[in-house]
Design a protein around this nucleic acid. Structure first.
Lengths: 363, 363
DNA sequence: CGATGTCATGACATCGGTGTCATAATCGCA
DNA sequence: TGCGATTATGACACCGATGTCATGACATCG
């Protein structure tokens, strides 16, 4: 593998001049530059980032830690893959900046984080991005002083720069739009209440109701999922919650589920109770897990978790930190997702509106 | 950041001795070792892989190219994520060997491969793994002579070491087991015939029939999907194919679909035709895309694509190559997946068996 | 016209490890 | 008991870039 010296010799210049051509950090004569470029091409020269790193302390590497890639046989694929979209977003932004991504996976085992970080330090990464599999608070092991760090899809108590999804706005927009379709009684069967997202989304749900002048009915909001995942409990909770809201004297015409996977199960349960979707009742998910949402019939209306954007923003924030631009105001940056409006939410059936004393629409 | 010299001074030894403690490549006195380790701990010393790479030409890095992480907005998530399990498998094996993974994503754009490879060369990766999003033949741009390369989930004409799923055996085992449940008429609605996997799986399907002494009926095998994905065409093809086999005078009691996503759609179509699953008809998928297979009702029986294992084998093969162990026999290594036997395949209904002239079972 | 600044280039030291070779002490065994 | 093998350690050069400083040729300006 040829070196900068080989190129210098071939172009009849000094190595330093070749370096200048490479980095464009000082003027180089037109003819000289041409000669150097020719020599580089002919020799197939590719600079060694190791050598550059050593002298200049810029490795061009960014470390990323995720638990995402990991498939945990015990714990199927609840969180699973989606946060890889975050990685994708990160990668795209970093590549544009000429950085290369070093990805490590905890394999679901938080104990391994220190060891992964050590590997990163060995490679002298210029910054680290920590990606969580779902919106949560984390506590990271202490990092060697100056390390630049950004959190994606999570945040910590120390005010480390963080990018998270705007769960509140997501649910709010979704419910607002459902109300726009004519729904007045909207149930919300949530993920485990222990999740950060659940609190925020419930806020969004209530905000949307309030804006529309609708009363908040606690009977319509039920925690119907658990963390960590447990197929049996999930089944039981969702079934009970569904039956509970359906049995209300004034039952909902639409149901929001905590995520798209819950929505899949809700489809099955509702059908087995003789309801036809989306005619008899509307259903909405959350996450926009496309492999699911687009395959179902009817195609699932849901709120997007803007993973790719979270990744992109995390990368941009980190690059800014590296450039030395102060950035952190201590509050996580919230990224708003789109509403994926598909077919599972339709205007409420006329009968239902009539039955419920909230009828205001015609026919 | 402290260096090996700092450690040497603190431990009162030469830098070379510290190096020996680090690498364990030469005997070091018990007391000396202890002193060095203490000094390293106190100084928080982490060796610079850049420096090591320069002198020893071992970067400890492996490059991995995938189109997988990429989300292509045009082309939803057909292939999408599953091959990330390959990455996971690779990572696990490499980490055990002390290697770090450099991951690059083509973003679905093959033109970017050369540029990604250049980045890898800059970082002096010791080998490269190329991961495809589905089993296919690929043609890679020429690599600088000696580069160690392994293909995962794909293969090329040049006989580059490659690891692929054993599609033939997967389908064969699946069908064999369905036959074991009593099915005699099994339809197979395949993915696009242009896919490598389709040919192999059809072979497997026929092999299983043959072993059971069942005749192969071409009317039961229909191409019912397209590549690249096109929601409209997919819908049309699957609908037509389903109706076609259901209308046969001797209709199937079970249907194999080309993948799990097709199975999801088949669930919907079959139900909308008044069939109850799994009572009236059995359905099987392929891939074992768990987020789907386990969420459906009934839970989908399917053949696993052993992504994690493919990744692990690819990593092991590459490590062997790097160690200089000749390995490539020019034929791709096939990795066999498990059958994920869930609830969607049940014994055929008695009536159906009676009607079909193949009846051999009772009741 | 001399002082100063910019362009273009090179010499040289240096980043932090490790390969090579040398050296001294100790050990095993003929 | 003597000699080759092994243990334990250090001196030194070197990997391939780049930072720093120096130098000469022009250009600009007061």
């Amino acid at each position: 593998m040829s070196t900068i010296y080989d190129v210098a010799r071939a172009a009849n210049v000094s190595p330093k001049t070749v370096s200048r051509v490479l980095n464009g950090d000082a003027p180089v004569g037109r003819e000289t530059r041409r000669a150097v470029e020719k020599a580089m091409a002919e020799l197939g020269y590719v600079p060694s980032s190791a050598a550059r790193t050593m002298r200049s302390n810029r490795s061009g590497l960014i470390g990323l830690v995720t638990g995402a890639i990991s498939l945990n046989p015990e714990q199927p694929s609840l969180s699973g893959l989606p946060d890889l979209f975050i990685v994708q977003g990160v990668q795209k932004s970093l590549e544009a900046a000429g950085m290369t991504l070093l990805i490590s996976d905890t394999g679901g085992n938080a104990d391994r984080v220190p060891s992964l970080l050590r590997t990163f330090v060995q490679h002298r990464v210029e910054g680290i991005i920590f990606v969580a599999d779902y919106h949560k608070q984390v506590k990271l092991p202490p990092l060697p002083g100056e390390t630049k760090l950004v959190l994606a899809n999570c945040f910590d108590a120390a005010g480390t720069p963080a990018i998270v999804p705007d769960d509140m706005q997501g649910q709010r927009q979704l419910v607002r739009r459902m109300i726009g379709e004519g729904h007045r009684r909207i149930a919300y069967l949530t993920l485990s209440r222990s999740l950060v997202a659940t609190g925020l989304r419930t806020e969004g749900y209530r905000a949307a109701l309030e804006e529309a002048g609708l009363a908040f009915d606690p009977a319509l909001v039920i925690e119907a999922d658990v963390t960590p995942p447990d197929p049996e409990a999930e089944e039981r909770l969702l079934t009970r919650a569904l039956d509970q809201v359906l049995a209300l004297s004034d039952p909902p015409t639409a149901i929001c589920l905590g995520n798209d996977r819950m929505a899949v199960r809700a489809y099955g349960l509702l059908r087995s109770r003789g309801l036809e979707l989306p005619r008899d009742i509307s259903v909405a998910g959350f996450d926009d897990y496309r492999a699911i949402a687009e395959s179902l019939y009817p195609k699932l209306t849901t709120a997007e978790l803007p993973y790719a954007q979270i990744g992109a923003r995390a990368a941009e924030t980190l690059l800014a930190l590296i450039r030395g631009e102060a950035h952190s105001d201590g509050t996580p940056e919230r990224v708003r997702g789109r509403i994926a409006w598909r077919d599972s939410v339709q205007p409420p059936p006329a009968t239902s509106i009539t039955i419920s004393s909230h009828g205001r629409k015609t026919e």
